[in-house]
Simulated scan of single mutants.
Amino acid sequence: MPKEKKTKTSRVHTAIAKQGILFNKDFGQHILKNPMVIKSMVEKAAIRPTDTVLEIGPGTGNMTVALLAAAKNVIACEIDTRLVAELQKRVQGTHLNQKLQILVGDVLKTELPFFNLCVANIPYQISSPLVFKLLLHRPFFRCAILMFQKEFAQRLVAEKGDKMYCRLSVNTQLLARVNIVLNVGRNNFRPPPKVDSSVVRLEPRNPPPPIHYQEWDGLTRIAFTRKNKTLASCFRQSPVLVTLEKNYRLYCSLNNQEFPENFDIKTKIENILSEIDAEKYRARTMDVDDFMRILLAFNKEGIHFA
């Protein structure tokens, strides 16, 4: 009689089965299991005993317990109700229980309360929108220690001229000081992701730059659509010209100005770029100050991007 074929199971699957949890790939669930990495992240946050710490995606609570030991209280935002139950069970009956507040739901759709610090192993697929949700949050927090996919982290800190430099880089650096503080291999997670990770420190600029962020974002979106092309070339695209003329008409209307006869938005844009010698600039070699100068020049002439 032939022997029954055994199904192979990895140590990861065995460990997950013991906890009774199957991690959901749709939520980007990769639980940080290395206590030394957790300890390092908590130390780099420089938590004070009076601090309220926001944690996003606490998972089974490995990081949460360490944060609770250092902070006055922790606000943990978790979308998966199974993991919420696991986290509640972990602190139940301990002195940490009263220090923990759990927000159940999608962090991108949740109104965040006040917090001093944010420390989190971020689900990779929400990295970009979450960065800007945090940086545009008011009142200001002191800093954030966040785990990202390594390539995403490299884009956050990339400087002009770097291969990784992009709209994400300049938009983030407008709003925050940012640097990589730790690299973390994929084997520090359960289950291991397909890529390595990096821990980034974000410190919001307070006071913020004196510009309308939506305007800034509109400008960088145009420039980085073709980051190797000149600004003059980027602004010649028909959809860009149509949008900017529409915005200019609105600007004239709101400011009780008569819309000029025989108005040509293309000529106006070319004149503005020429006046500040920016027509040959390329997004990949422009820093925050360059974009700021260009935005202010356009706004001065009534051209808006929001």
Rank of each mutant, 00 (worst) to 15 (best):
M1H: 10
E4G: 07
K6S: 08
R11Q: 11
A15N: 07
A17V: 09
Q19F: 10
Q19N: 15
I21W: 09
I21Y: 05
L22M: 00
D26E: 12
D26A: 14
F27C: 10
G28S: 11
I31E: 03
L32M: 11
K33R: 15
M36N: 07
V37C: 10
V37D: 00
A45Y: 08
I47S: 08
R48H: 06
P49W: 09
V53S: 07
G57P: 03
T60G: 08
M63K: 10
A70M: 00
N73E: 15
N73I: 12
A76W: 09
C77A: 12
I79R: 05
R82T: 03
E86P: 01
L87S: 06
G93I: 09
T94L: 13
N97K: 15
Q98S: 11
Q98T: 05
V104P: 04
V107D: 01
L108H: 07
L112H: 03
P113A: 00
V119C: 03
A120G: 10
P123S: 12
P129D: 08
F132G: 02
L135M: 06
F141N: 04
C143E: 15
C143F: 13
A144Q: 02
I145K: 00
Q149N: 13
A153T: 06
L156Q: 09
L156D: 07
V157A: 07
E159K: 15
K163A: 15
K163C: 11
M164E: 13
R167I: 10
V170Y: 04
N171S: 03
A176W: 03
N187R: 15
R190W: 03
P192G: 06
V200I: 13
L202A: 02
N206M: 06
P208L: 10
P208N: 07
I211Q: 01
Y213K: 06
E215D: 05
R226Y: 15
K227Y: 08
K227R: 15
N228K: 15
L231M: 12
S233T: 14
C234A: 14
C234I: 05
S238W: 11
P239G: 05
L241G: 03
V242N: 12
E245C: 06
K246F: 11
Y248Q: 00
L254A: 13
N256I: 08
Q257V: 11
F259E: 07
I265G: 00
K268R: 09
A278D: 09
D287T: 04
D290S: 15
K300F: 09
E301K: 13
I303Q: 02
